[in-house]
């Protein structure tokens, strides 16, 4: 029963919830800027300024003509941006109101897919084969990285005995916010490493970036996206990036307040970027085989260690 007494309309809570996706997008775009700068430096270039992705997004939204393939295309794009925002609300940050008590890890894992699914729908509406090839690769890779990633996540769940992220985060912070001895990266290290490898696939960074392979299949899903639709895609990518990194930080690196999670996400992202820049792209089947071999075996070993210790 809805109890009206419990139904406190907390303006501050609502506003901070609304603020969260904006913050996530801004940080995600900043990360993209950092990535571009970093890769430029490794290529011995200067690279664009850090705010470059913001300019890109503003430019894309200020385009004077846009092309759409119909209302389902629009619906897909809107669903695409809504997905990661929804996901972010279920991730607990210390001191910020969040919806984490109302949805556990399973809810997050499934809201995580809404965004990519929406974008995939938009890519499917047009007749462009490249977009659909990108989707096929993305979904195939998802099947690939999901196995090690889920095993690693379940190792955490096995250790924590719960699917509630708030409890998982609290458990890791029990020794203090800055003490990593209770972080699951330290408690289930083998599975965490496997999860970390799979995270590269989750974020679609090289060597697992088959889904947007600019020199093979146009740019995959983005092939037919232009103007504000590409802008939506960028915002989605930024927000999704932040949400995924935040989820991984909360699961394995102890979570914490928003700024700390952001720092942890940055740390994770810099590592991921360095791998991305140094690696080439694998063929889809190679990447799939890789994911189902080493990280899976590692994650299984990690899970077994948790179960039998």
């Amino acid at each position: 029963m809805i109890n009206l007494n419990n139904f406190q309309i907390n303006v501050w809570a609502a506003l901070s919830l609304l603020f969260l996706p904006i913050y996530g997008t801004a940080i995600g775009l900043l990360f993209m800027g950092i990535f571009r700068r970093l890769s430029a430096r490794i290529h011995q270039r200067y690279g664009p300024p850090l705010w470059q992705p913001y300019a890109d997004v503003i430019k894309l939204f200020s385009k004077k003509s846009n092309f759409s393939h119909g209302w389902v295309y629009d619906l897909g794009v809107i669903m695409g941006l809504a997905g990661p925002a929804l996901m972010l609300w279920f991730i607990p940050f210390n001191g910020l109101p969040n919806m984490a008590p109302y949805g556990d890890l399973i809810v997050i894992l499934y809201t995580m897919v809404i965004g990519p699914l929406g974008m995939a729908l938009a890519a499917a509406v047009g007749a462009s084969p490249w977009g659909v090839l990108g989707v096929a690769r993305a979904l195939g890779m998802m099947f690939g990285y999901e196995l090690p990633f889920m095993l690693a996540v379940l190792a955490v769940v096995a250790k924590a005995g719960t699917l509630r992220l708030t409890e998982i985060a609290a458990m890791q912070q029990s020794a203090g916010l800055w003490n990593p001895s209770n972080w699951f990266y330290a408690l289930v290290p083998v599975a965490a490493v496997a999860g970390h490898i799979a995270l590269q696939g989750v974020m679609g960074e090289k060597p697992f970036d088959q889904a947007i392979a600019p020199h093979e299949i146009g740019t995959g899903i983005m092939t037919e996206f232009g103007g504000k639709y590409l802008g939506m895609m960028f915002l989605f990518a930024a927000l999704n990036l932040f949400a995924e990194l935040a989820l991984f930080s909360v699961l394995f690196l102890g979570g914490g307040p928003l700024w700390l999670v952001t720092l942890k996400a940055l740390f994770l992202y810099v590592i991921a970027s360095l791998v991305d820049i140094t690696y080439g792209r694998f063929r889809p089947d190679q990447a799939f085989a890789l994911l189902w071999k080493w990280p899976t075996v590692l994650a299984l070993i990690g899970l077994m260690i948790v179960l039998f210790s």
């Binding site: 092309f67 983005m222 092939t223 037919e224 232009g226 103007g227």
Partner: peptide, 8 residues
Amino acid sequence: MATPRQAD
């Protein structure tokens, strides 16, 4: 960029 939709 790869495709005309994305280009200026």
